[in-house]
């Protein structure tokens, strides 16, 4: 069984607490996380799977295997990619039901709430919506 979404978020928050709100260290850490995100297969990095933002864009590809949703993602900016990697860590491998019922509380706790809300500036916000949309679509398939 997949680790609970709440537990994953709590352990992410714990990791970020080491930086004691030092924004520069948080951003460098996010960029490092982004580098560890498994490379997205080029055939999925197409216009069809792009989630557009004004400054940064995100690619998001999903698949549905054995009742669970799996995500591949990438971004053209390193900080966004770091955040994207956290979303993949949290949501990839979960059931559609669990994804739909989950609340994202880690973003604010790691001091990155500015990255959410302004859909125009950032592909990240759109990505969160898109993930939930995929989950909803797979749920109706069940």
């Amino acid at each position: 069984m997949a680790k609970k979404i709440t537990d994953i978020q709590n352990s992410i928050i714990e990791n970020f607490e080491l930086f004691e709100d030092d924004m520069e260290s948080i951003l460098f850490y996010l960029m490092d996380l982004g580098k560890k995100l498994p490379a997205m297969p080029e055939e999925h990095k197409t216009e069809e799977f792009i989630v557009k933002g004004c400054q940064s864009k995100v690619w998001l590809y999903s698949s549905f295997v054995d009742g669970k949703v799996f995500f591949e993602a990438d971004s053209n900016t390193e900080i966004t990619k770091g955040l994207v990697s956290l979303l993949v860590e949290i949501w990839s491998g979960q059931t559609p039901e669990d994804i739909l019922n989950s609340e994202l509380f880690f973003i604010e706790k790691i001091g990155m709430s500015r990255m959410v809300g302004s859909q125009r500036s950032n592909g990240f916000t759109s990505m969160i919506k898109q993930i939930k949309m995929y989950a909803l679509a797979y749920k109706t398939k069940l």
Binding site: I26, L27, S56, T77, E78
Partner: peptide, 21 residues
């Protein structure tokens, strides 16, 4: 090798306000 958005965020972390985009 660095996206302007990342540069803007990193500078902001040091209290520096620039425009990116």
């Amino acid at each position: 090798g660095m996206h302007h958005f990342d540069v803007g965020m990193m500078l902001d972390a040091r209290g520096i306000a620039v425009r990116t985009g």
